[in-house]
Amino acid sequence: MGRRIAIGIYAVLILLPLTMVLLTSVKTLEQTFNNPLGIPIDEGLTFANYVNIFREETMFGYFINSSVVTLSSVSLTLLLSCMIAYGIVRLGNWLGNILFVLFTLGMMVPAQVSMVPLYDLILTLGLTNSLLGLILVNIAVTMPVAVFILTGFMKTLPKELFEASTIDGATNWTTFVRIVIPLSLPSISATAIFLFVMHWNDLLYPLLFVTDNAYKTLPLALLDFQGQYETNYPMLFTGVIIASLPMVLAYVLLQRYFVAGMTAGSVKG
């Protein structure tokens, strides 16, 4: 009984704020201030916020920027990390161990530690206000956790597989592409989801490197809405919904993989 009540309270605690987001996004500012929690039955709900946000803001642009940065960062981090993990497992000696420590060291260092020199570096390289700058930094920063998860998985693959493949005359690259990648797919997909969530939601690097609207990603654009719309919650929440939509849809469809991926990634630290 107590258990059910507790679960019920937790469910309300999660659902209530989310419901408020949905509800507020279809109310006017005036309705929100006069009756923040109410449903305007007489006046009806409005979708004006959704129309306005696309009219006033370059939402499509932010959306595309976020998609380009996220997709490129995730796929490149995965490719490079798989190669490194495979290299570490194939070497299997002291050098492999040293490289493993070197690459996973980054998990211990919070991103904020290097933000000052990193900003200077990006400025020097002329990569401010560019998606490429964001992608390169994203790869370097998430590589440690990806290498950590993928190496852990690839270590469990039977060594005989690699050796048999080599005897058959396959190069390291062929073995990697034909055998290691297909067999590691469960671990790769878990890592991919973890990276997706991280890169899609990242605020710090766009905040540091991007000032031009043409290169802003969704989280940074949202943050700017705050300066622009202040406590215009209907507009802010409309932004929140649009920015979260891809993740929410993916979560509903691939829920099982999400949970697996996000917990694999949480071993980080």
Partner: peptide, 23 residues
Amino acid sequence: WRALFFFPTILSSVSVAFIWMFM
């Protein structure tokens, strides 16, 4: 229930910030 309670994790910090500024 587990899937529901896990849900906020997939949101961005900025979104969560806005939600709770309103709360």
